[in-house]
Design a protein around this nucleic acid. Sequence first.
DNA 1: TATGAATGAGAGTTCATTCAT
DNA 2: GATGAATGAACTCTCATTCAT
Lengths: 218, 218, 218, 218
Amino acid sequence: MEKYICEPSHTFLNLPEEKRLRIIREAVCEFGEYGYQRASVNRIVQRLGIAKGSLYQYFTNKEALFIAAFDHFSELVKKTVRSDRDPKGDFFYQVSGVLHSGYLFLKKYPDFFLLYSRVLAEEDTPHREMLIKRFHLFSVEYFRPFLDSGKASGLIRTDVNNALIFFMVEALLDRFFRECRGGSVSGMFGNDNPDDSLTQIIDQLVGVLRVGLGTTRI
Amino acid sequence: MEKYICEPSHTFLNLPEEKRLRIIREAVCEFGEYGYQRASVNRIVQRLGIAKGSLYQYFTNKEALFIAAFDHFSELVKKTVRSDRDPKGDFFYQVSGVLHSGYLFLKKYPDFFLLYSRVLAEEDTPHREMLIKRFHLFSVEYFRPFLDSGKASGLIRTDVNNALIFFMVEALLDRFFRECRGGSVSGMFGNDNPDDSLTQIIDQLVGVLRVGLGTTRI
Amino acid sequence: MEKYICEPSHTFLNLPEEKRLRIIREAVCEFGEYGYQRASVNRIVQRLGIAKGSLYQYFTNKEALFIAAFDHFSELVKKTVRSDRDPKGDFFYQVSGVLHSGYLFLKKYPDFFLLYSRVLAEEDTPHREMLIKRFHLFSVEYFRPFLDSGKASGLIRTDVNNALIFFMVEALLDRFFRECRGGSVSGMFGNDNPDDSLTQIIDQLVGVLRVGLGTTRI
Amino acid sequence: MEKYICEPSHTFLNLPEEKRLRIIREAVCEFGEYGYQRASVNRIVQRLGIAKGSLYQYFTNKEALFIAAFDHFSELVKKTVRSDRDPKGDFFYQVSGVLHSGYLFLKKYPDFFLLYSRVLAEEDTPHREMLIKRFHLFSVEYFRPFLDSGKASGLIRTDVNNALIFFMVEALLDRFFRECRGGSVSGMFGNDNPDDSLTQIIDQLVGVLRVGLGTTRI
DNA sequence: TATGAATGAGAGTTCATTCAT
DNA sequence: GATGAATGAACTCTCATTCAT
């Protein structure tokens, strides 16, 4: 993992874990709600009930605080995905699994997810490219083995570029999660079914992928 | 087309076209670069070399200027797509056509495209939902006939929801254009071919769609 | 009547009377609603539907327009009071008469009255002292004969200074009209009688004056 | 005393008293000179020689500063009147006492008095009605016992409405103080006697009231 | 004579950051 | 180590007035 220009200070790291977490959580919340630029350090310290000077002793500036908040989130995502991992299924099963556990994650930590979308969305987010790339690499690293073995075993068309496959999968994940955040997933396809129709929708989406990218025929 | 609460003033509409366009263009540029909230009216008038008061005689407020800029862009996009339209091809041919002409458009007006992504991305953009919806409706309106006749003629699977098809197509368009903006299209798949490899990439993407959504077999 | 530094221009005086009156009326309205300083020339021309430049050709500046508006009002008041005048009654009857006709006036021309209160109230009104003094002089001029003959005929205490009598009468007029503007006159004494109780209230007020200042005993 | 939506911040309350008072005093001065709307926060901080941001850490906005300034003044007035109070005299004696101590107060704090007149005068003053009402209530609360016992003991006419009596007394107080502010009190009745003629004038005024409202005959 | 586009100073307010205590 | 008062540039928006057409 790269070192940032501005790591949290020792003062911060020596804080009791509870307080450290509260600070990170409030930061995630603020940055998620307003995006980096419009987020207000004032509001953060107000919500925390600590002095502005204190925060500036933990982090050299707004940017450092932001990076720390994002990092925490990003580690959490990876941990969650890894722990949910069921290594038995094929590539398409994995995609479907990530859609499911991603959905659960964003229902559980809406603030974290909001923060992530903000970073994706707002170009003036500091270190944006690095942060995004890290997620992309994680996704590649996660799906790669399944993709490789899929191609090896004849499950997946070998005439389609890996990069293009990642491109399509990430496009669908992105859009799916973005859509999720707003309203109910089912609502996005016009019907008013409750959340449990989620499985059907994911199945349909992945089904199309399976046909388009796979060798299986209908 | 709906009327907004705050149209540009007569003063603005009576301006010589050249000046009017310059103003819109600079606004698009600023809003594209910073997003609505962080964009600065100060900077805009500075770039234009006009007095702040003047701009406020053209538009009641920042929001009105923003809407005007976005509208100009949005009309231009529609006009471009419509004029490029080749009504002969099937649904997938149309998707491929839109990818092409969209690519050309964003190379020609990168600022406009930036603005669009900002709107998609930033939730505190005023009237965001309306602006996005309008694009979505345009896309539905454009593709719908081809989709319908495709299903009728047996070209396209009828067991896949229309909404889901739109979802996938828009997801790919979105991501494709977003990727385009950064570097060369070819760069996004790891190879350094010049732009003329664009056709191949689009063909591959649409090819996968054609298999996944269509009844044609490989 | 004194000449002002800035009379309305010939251009204005040559305007058709109807237009001239509309301009004055809108000005009265604006200055009444916002007071001199906060009144907006922009709004006035907007309401009138004429060009800002035009207004500035009629009046050299905001101040000149204001004076013209106030003058018109002030002439109207004097005309009204004079035409209502019933020279038969004694001093106290006259006071009561002015209270009545003042009340009717302010119900008929609330904007004019509002303008007057603004002038009384706001110290940064240009030429305020002159405008107020003119009203005071009018009041003195109006009441003086009745006061003199009242003292001569033994109706009014001669041991009370004329200036003090004017002071008291004007204080009551002022407060009475100020109170009137807000709600119903009757409301100001806590009872909810309709406007026709006005006569009783005025009678009571003047009654107290009559006892305090007069030689009549209860 | 009611709490306002926006009290001064802790930051302000923790300031050394001297500085706190300076700020209030300058605010009173500015609001008194220009009225609420035209008063300029810029000018206030300039006069104080502090940064604009500082003032906004003390008070959430212009309105809060205004209310704080008015409150300070209003408490001071009440304290002054109460401490001058001589509970021995009758109702008319009390009126005369308030005229005297009011006069002294406004000579001592002319800016405070100016502010008060502004509030009375300018309808777009925020919370105007509440501020005025509070003064009226204070006046009622102060005079009421004397008025009641006056009526009980047969000193005051019982056929005159209490509300009407308050109306007259307040009208005279208002006008008296307004007149005072401009020049010397004596000047207002045309003679050039020094301030010590004040007593005579007040005596005359109250004398008329005593006759008009009282049962005592000349 | 009438127009209305242009002006620019000044309004209230916010905010990341510093530093003496 | 913690505090929080102070800062001042930048923000959006308003307005009386001018002047070329």
